Computed example of a mutant assay.
Amino acid sequence: MERVPNLTRADAVEAVRNPLAFIAARWTPTPRTVQRAALSALVMAVVIVVTGGAVRLTGSGLGCPTWPKCTDDSLTATSAMGFHGAIEFGNRMLTYVLCAAVGWAIIAARSEKPYRRSLTRLGWAQFWIVMSNAILGGIVVLVGLNPYTVAAHFVATTALITVAAVMWQRTREGDTAPRPLVGKPVQQLVWFMVAAAALLILVGTVVTGAGPHAGDSSEVERMPLDWETVSKVHAVLAWIVVSLTFALWFILKAVDAPAGPLHRTRDLFLVLLSQGVIGYVQYFTDLPEFLVGLHMLGSALVWIGVLRVLLALRERSDGESPGVPAQSYAATGSSVTGPS
């Protein structure tokens, strides 16, 4: 068995001053390890969405009535606080698990050889979003679950999912200039779909803010909007996104596009259909908590699916293998060229 080298005083000083550089100098993770680290951060970001939804749907939003402590006298939930205190405090503790996952992604990215600055920056971006959202979560509690702060809290988590999904994708490709796989008209259609999906999610937060699940059993302020009207607007936007996704799949099929964009568009379409079924069922069954929770999970999966379609429109080689020959897509009105 190989002996672990003893740390000198200089090593100890270096480890304290720059622990990431210290680890990177002594450890080289495999590409698969880096990919798994990035995926773990993405998975935990989705888990936080689901558990945050559970806090609201169980009426436990003020289970810990203050922040950063759970109560004025206790850092943690007490037995006297019951079920709601345990749920809210448990969700707070999951933030540390999320931080660990993001930290693991940063360490793995920093230690990869050769060093990829862009990948490490994506990891740090997640860290600062998590820190900012933790503070925002505290503000949500301190202002008594004001619906506008709750909506901002969810939007910040969606931003975290965005960066995590991009990092996961970047761990599986090189750092050369992106080469488009489809023509300009298809790219523009996808960007329009991304914008529609983002608007769909934003309106979804308004539906939540105006709806009946306020997050606590006490009287909580709601957005002064008609919930059913906002829900119908949300449904119309959902149908727009579904229609754009189907149109994109049809066009990609017609122009014999590469398998990557085609398969990811198909996957997104299936997720959207499932999300639509859940949405309509929950609407006509008076919003049962379990279905609302599934719908929140579906929202995260839809957004990840949209991002995966967008990121599939180009490829980046590792710089060691020749690029794929350009293909022409006459039906899109443009052609694919070499690296831009």
Rank of each mutant, 00 (worst) to 15 (best):
T58K: 02
L237C: 06
T158Q: 12
M223N: 02
T33Y: 08
N133P: 02
L189N: 10
T33G: 08
R314M: 06
L199K: 03
G211Q: 03
M167Y: 08
A15C: 12
P29E: 10
L252K: 09
L42H: 05
V97Y: 06
V140T: 15
Q187E: 14
R308M: 13
A37P: 12
S317V: 12
A15Q: 13
K232P: 00
L291H: 05
V194L: 15
V140I: 10
I201D: 02
Q169K: 14
Q275G: 05
A198M: 11
E219Y: 03
A45Y: 04
I48D: 00
S334L: 06
M44I: 05
P114M: 08
L94R: 04
R308E: 15
S328H: 15
W128C: 05
E221I: 09
M93T: 03
P114H: 04
V207A: 02
V203C: 04
R110V: 05
V182F: 07
F284Y: 15
V13F: 14
E221G: 01
G52K: 05
P258T: 09
A109I: 10
F284G: 06
F269Y: 12
K113D: 09
A37F: 09
L273S: 06
P224A: 04
A331H: 14
H153Y: 06
V143K: 09
G123Q: 06
V102T: 07
P31T: 11
I251H: 09
Q126R: 08
A41R: 01
N91Y: 07
A177E: 15
A164V: 08
Q327M: 11
K232C: 03
F250M: 14
V130A: 04
G137W: 02
D226E: 07
D73M: 06
G59M: 04
F22N: 07
V203M: 04
T285I: 11
G338T: 14
Q126E: 14
G298F: 12
V130D: 00
G138H: 07
F269C: 12
G85W: 01
V190T: 13
A159S: 11
G90Q: 01
A38C: 10
T58E: 03
P325G: 09
S274V: 13
L244V: 04
I251V: 11
M193Y: 04
A259F: 14
I135N: 03
T95P: 01
V281T: 10
